[in-house]
Design a protein around this nucleic acid. Structure first.
Length: 488
RNA sequence: GGUCUCAUGGCCGAGCGGUUAGGCACCGGUCUGCAAAACCGUCUACAGCAGUUCGAAUCUGCUUGAGACCUCCA
């Protein structure tokens, strides 16, 4: 697998181009991905990012890397709203639901865990929370102050962007120029404590009505939004690690500020490769809480989104996501979902058919080249859509063999089967769907279809069609094939 | 307003200078008692205008349109 490792190319947002992936320590990877803020249930757009990084994680593991995957849970922190005020979104949700902040976080953490299970996502190795790392955050803030890149005002601490810019490039990730930003930024709030508009809070003095407050050298307060990621990534992956990921919308200011904090405290950019997953769109616009055009991952499973006529399984949704590259926008539409549902079923059927096909002395197509195309696709910045296309290429060959129009040797068959299973199940994370009802129904259906087969043998079409129509009404579709009858 | 990204066949979506992406739909066929399903085949697009090149969806410029970020968001 070493050879395949060496060919991996990743698009690095930091440079705006693809580059060969070389880990800091051979064979090992440290990866940090910004997780959800648990003040509400993650919506489908949030899930797309996590599913994409799950794909990346899975492929890195498959390549044989020893990956340490850290994804945080934000359960504290003050962010800046449009009015320039620091706001505690979790606290606000707690008040609205008349619960304690920790109840809110726990409630949604459980839901998030359930979603990860349903969408077949591998759990990260560590899932740290901000509230459990207050001390680490304080220590980094102290370091930044000691290095001269932060100042305290009235119980709060702010990052000194102007001072930082004398030594480092603020905007290295997002490409923003601070002097340009200044012109377009709304006028500073009169009572703002910041010295400069681009400064951001590292620590924020407590408000009288805050539910959660922590002690610090600067008095009681809350950590700023960005500092938790710096603290936790440093603690578990070190001052510099391989991959830092997150949604495109976190690029600025969140990730830019993380870089500033790391440089300001340790003197280096925390990650060598920055990866950003693109947004999920609904009707051409980013799915977003503030736009209100979002639906929940569970709604698509039970058909209650209000946008689509029917429900879709988690595997179908996952497959749908895999058919678009992680750096592209993806439009959620009914037609596209239906297409994915059929495609997913076709792929899974193909894999099943592979088990039954007859082998011969020769193979009529290049199996090794096909398998190598799977790797080639994923090695090119995790191009899952190409991988899927190549898997369909394999399905086509399988069906041709099944119809007697192509051939495969026993050795090639077992190689192809192994490769397809690895890429479909382990890399793409698609599971074969089976449900308990089907298992219970199977003996009954065998009996019914047996009776129908007898009627058909006797050319008793009335009875055989009566059975078929009756089953159709019950939602069971009978499929007659030359080698027997199946149903679903 | 600033910065950036993108515009691909009916729909979703790859593509990074020369070859069929792929899936779905449509249409044709095979199979079938009929039907459905399944399978096979077909459909050959690249916003517009100009340029670079032997050759451009792919590079450059302009035009038009869309989106993201600049404020919380994955």
């Amino acid at each position: 697998m070493k050879a395949q490792q060496d060919q991996l190319v990743i698009y690095n947002s930091l440079k705006g181009e693809k580059e060969p992936f070389v880990p800091l320590v051979e064979g090992k990877i440290g990866m940090y991905v910004c997780g959800p803020t648990l003040y509400s249930e993650p919506h489908m757009g949030n899930m797309r990012t996590f599913i994409n990084f799950d794909l990346i994680y899975r492929y890195l593991i498959h390549l044989g890397f020893q990956v340490k995957y850290v994804r945080n849970i934000t359960d504290a922190g003050h962010i800046t709203n449009s009015a320039g005020q620091e706001v505690d979104s979790i606290g606000a949700a707690a008040k609205a639901e008349q619960l304690h902040s920790l109840e809110i976080v726990y409630k949604y953490a459980l839901k998030f865990q359930e979603l990860q299970r349903v969408y077949n996502m591998l759990p990260p190795n560590i899932e740290p929370t901000a509230t459990q790392h207050i001390q680490e955050q304080i220590e980094i803030i102290e370091q930044i102050i000691a290095n001269g890149y932060a100042y305290q005002v009235n119980g709060s601490v702010y990052f000194d962007t102007r001072r930082y810019m004398q030594d480092y490039n603020y905007g290295i990730l997002s490409g923003r120029k601070v002097d340009e930003l200044e012109n377009e930024t709304r006028t500073l709030n009169a009572q703002d404590e910041k010295r400069f508009f681009a400064d951001f809070a590292l620590w924020k003095k407590a408000n009288p009505d805050d539910m959660q407050v922590w002690r610090s050298p600067w008095g009681n307060g809350n950590p700023g939004w960005h500092i938790e990621c710096t603290a936790m990534s440093t603690k578990y992956l070190g001052q510099q690690f391989d991959i830092h990921g997150g949604g495109m919308d976190l690029k600025f200011p969140h990730h830019e500020d993380e870089i500033a904090q790391s440089c300001g405290s340790f003197g280096c950019n925390p990650a060598r490769y920055w990866m950003h997953a693109n947004m999920l769109n609904v009707n051409g616009q980013k799915m977003s809480k503030s736009f209100g055009n979002y639906f929940l991952p569970k709604q698509i499973l039970d058909g209650s989104t209000g946008l689509f006529e029917k429900s879709y399984s988690a595997n179908v949704v996952r497959f749908f996501i895999m058919q678009a590259h992680y750096r592209s926008n993806l439009d959620f539409t009914q037609e596209a979902l239906n297409a994915s549902e059929k495609g997913y079923l076709r792929l899974m059927e193909g894999l099943k058919t592979l088990d039954h096909i007859q082998t011969t002395a020769t193979t009529s197509f290049d199996v090794a080249a096909l398998i190598s195309s799977f790797y080639k696709a994923m090695n090119d910045d995790f191009n899952a859509p190409i991988l899927v296309a190549q898997l369909f290429e394999a399905v086509k060959h399988i069906n041709l063999i099944n119809d007697g129009n192509a051939s495969i040797t026993i050795a090639d068959k077992s190689e192809l089967k192994a490769a397809m299973e690895v890429f479909i199940h382990d890399v793409l994370g698609l599971a074969a769907e089976s449900n308990a009802t089907e298992t219970r129904l199977a003996p009954v259906m065998d009996l019914v279809l047996d009776l129908r087969q007898q009627a058909r043998a006797n050319k008793d079409w009335t009875t055989s069609d009566q059975i078929r129509d009756g089953l159709t009404k019950a939602g069971i579709i009978v499929k007659d094939a030359k080698d027997g009858t199946t149903w679903n």
